[in-house]
Simulated assay, not measured.
Amino acid sequence: MSKYFPFSAIVGQSEMKAALLIAAVDRSIGGVMVFGDRGTGKSTAVRALAALLPPIRVVAGSRYNADPDRRADYAADPAAAKGKAIDGPVPFVDLPLGASEDRVVGALDLEAALTQGIKRFEPGLLARANRGFLYIDEINLLEDHIVDLLLDVAASGENVVEREGLSVRHPARVVLVGSGNPEEGELRPQLLDRFGLSVEVRTPDNLKERILVVKRRDAFDRDPAAFAAEWAAEDAKVLDSIAAARALLPQVTVDDSVLEASSRLCMAVGADGLRGELTMLRAARATAALDGDAHVDEGHLIEVAAMALRHRLRRNPLDDAGSTARIERALAEQFGLGERTKSAA
């Protein structure tokens, strides 16, 4: 019986699905932040994508989902040196809102210390999530120092723990996905900027779309296996597109004219730093790969601009328009799009 709602059966929320697919193709994007109303399918989409992805090769017995082809992963995991390579699911780990720092990064195994007198490291959630997804619901309510720690680890791909005389370094290559409702508290701009992409989801205001959402969810709840089988072919197409995009990604090229357009757009909207331009470049390249294009054009740039920049804009007291509206206005001026862009409002 299927545990997860099929990714391809999710109604609407095109921007959120696009951002997750981009992150699945290029892990260097830096994770995805999803802001929106409760009950709009945020966690459903992330779990569906993780379940959809093909199995990964891991070392049997490894506590860190060690990659058989990366000998460096074995240093922190002696069991990995003896294990065989097997197929395993892409890890998906939920981080509870009240999780302590020790539970996240790992700590001294107290039972072994008290009963055997030995110092042994007990891996945390970051170890379990290595090479997969770490999902944090209501991230805006999480303590800032935990969020900062997670973002540092996600950026470096490594978790370093110093505890009670222990010094442990282990791989933690995770795709960080956070979600939250802005009405319940904002995430600090310094932390928000560290996420690669930011998307907004809203409760559907179209009657037909709302009815379709309810019908599909009800059908899944009544018979998950039958519903998953009905959408298996569509999910297979999504999986094939991800695999093809990963293979094509290293060959995707970007002309200087596109880079210039990207920089001009960032300057026009007042994006802080250069991280927005780098993220927009990577996201546009991944989007091109998903489209089967070996060359990034302005259309790909337009498609990812709002996702890459909306959370990096300085507040302008003379402009009360939202960040998405400001980006769409800049896109219209730079690319002559009028009122129409591919980004979601």
Rank of each mutant, 00 (worst) to 15 (best):
E234W: 02
L110D: 00
P55G: 09
R340L: 13
V160C: 08
G132T: 07
A289Y: 04
P96Y: 06
V304P: 08
V252C: 05
V34A: 00
K3W: 12
P182C: 13
F5H: 06
S257G: 05
V177D: 01
K82G: 14
E200A: 12
R216S: 05
V175K: 01
A219I: 11
G270P: 11
C266W: 06
D255Y: 00
T203M: 09
G157K: 05
R246T: 02
T324C: 00
R222G: 00
A85Y: 02
V59E: 03
V147H: 03
A24T: 04
D148R: 08
L212F: 00
A245M: 04
A271D: 11
I86P: 06
P317H: 09
A284L: 07
G98Y: 13
D218R: 14
F35Y: 15
D255N: 11
G61P: 12
K342F: 10
H311L: 08
A321N: 15
V147G: 01
G36L: 06
D256R: 10
F227H: 04
W231E: 02
A268N: 05
D152V: 11
M33A: 11
W231T: 04
T115E: 15
I302E: 15
I136V: 15
V105T: 13
R217N: 12
A228P: 08
A226Y: 03
V58G: 01
S2A: 15
V168Q: 02
V238D: 01
L166G: 05
K208W: 00
P96A: 08
A24I: 04
A332H: 06
D94F: 07
L192G: 13
R169C: 13
A305E: 07
N159H: 06
L331T: 04
E303R: 12
